[in-house]
Design a binder for these strands. Sequence first.
DNA 1: AATTTCTTCTATAGTCTGTAGAAGCACTTC
DNA 2: GAAGTGCTTCTACAGACTATAGAAGAAATT
Lengths: 118, 118
Amino acid sequence: MGALGELERAVMDAVWDAGAAITAYDVQASLEQAQQRTWAVTTVLTVLGRLEKKGLVSSDRSARPHHYRAVASRADHVAELMHEALGETTDRSGVFSRFVGGISAEDADMLRSLLREG
Amino acid sequence: MGALGELERAVMDAVWDAGAAITAYDVQASLEQAQQRTWAVTTVLTVLGRLEKKGLVSSDRSARPHHYRAVASRADHVAELMHEALGETTDRSGVFSRFVGGISAEDADMLRSLLREG
DNA sequence: AATTTCTTCTATAGTCTGTAGAAGCACTTC
DNA sequence: GAAGTGCTTCTACAGACTATAGAAGAAATT
C-alpha cells in the first residue's frame, strides 16, 4: 500500500537487482556499493521486515542467514503502481493522451506493438 | 512529490471537480457532501496550504475568501504519477506488457488510437 | 562451554498527515 | 471609533510511518 521510503526503495532495488533470493548481508553490501555510506545489518533487517509486512518481499527462514526474495518483479510492481495511479479515473482518454504525449518514441513503439498482440 | 494523504486526496478531488477556482468553504461543503462528516474550515485551509506547498494548487489571495485552483488537471496529475512510477525503469517492455495486460479492452482501444496519431 | 553468527526486541528521532483552537486582521455597522 | 463579523494565519498536538540501530536472545560452530 503506502509508498516506499527512500531506504525501502533502495533495498527493493537491491533485491530486484539480485534476481534471486538474497540475505540481509547481501543487501547491506549492495546498498553500500550503490550509495556512499554504510548501514547496520539490523537496519537492513528492520527494513526487510517492513517490506515483508507490506507484501513486497517474502523470506525463507529455514536457511540460516535468512533469504529474502521479491514477491513481484520490478516490472510487475511498476505496472501495478501505474494501475493504481490510474485508479477509478473517469477521464481515461485524457490521462492516456497526456501519458502517451510524454513518452519517448521507443516507448510508444513498444506500447503500440504490445497493443497489437493481445 | 510525496503521495497524498486521504484528506488531501479528497480535497484535491473537490478542487478538480469544481472545475474553476473555489474557496475553502466550497471545499468544506463539497467534502461534507461527498463523505458523511464535517471538517473545520481551518482544517481545510491547512490542507489547502499543504497542497499549495506541494505545488498541486495555487491560490489567489487578493479576493477575500481566498480562491484556490488546481495547478494541473486531474488527467495531468494522474499521467504524471504514471510517468513517475515508470521512472528510470530499464525494463520498459516488461512494464508495458504487464500494464497493457491489465487494462480493459476499451482502455486498450483508446491507447491504440492515441498511439496511431502523433 | 565458549565463541561467533545471526535474529528479534526495543527504542528514539524525524517527517508527514489529520485535526482544529486561538488569535489576529479587515470590513461593516451602529 | 467601538463592536461585531468573517476570514486567515499561527500554533499545536496526536498518530502513523520511516530511518536508524543497540542490546539481548537464539543458534551454530569450535
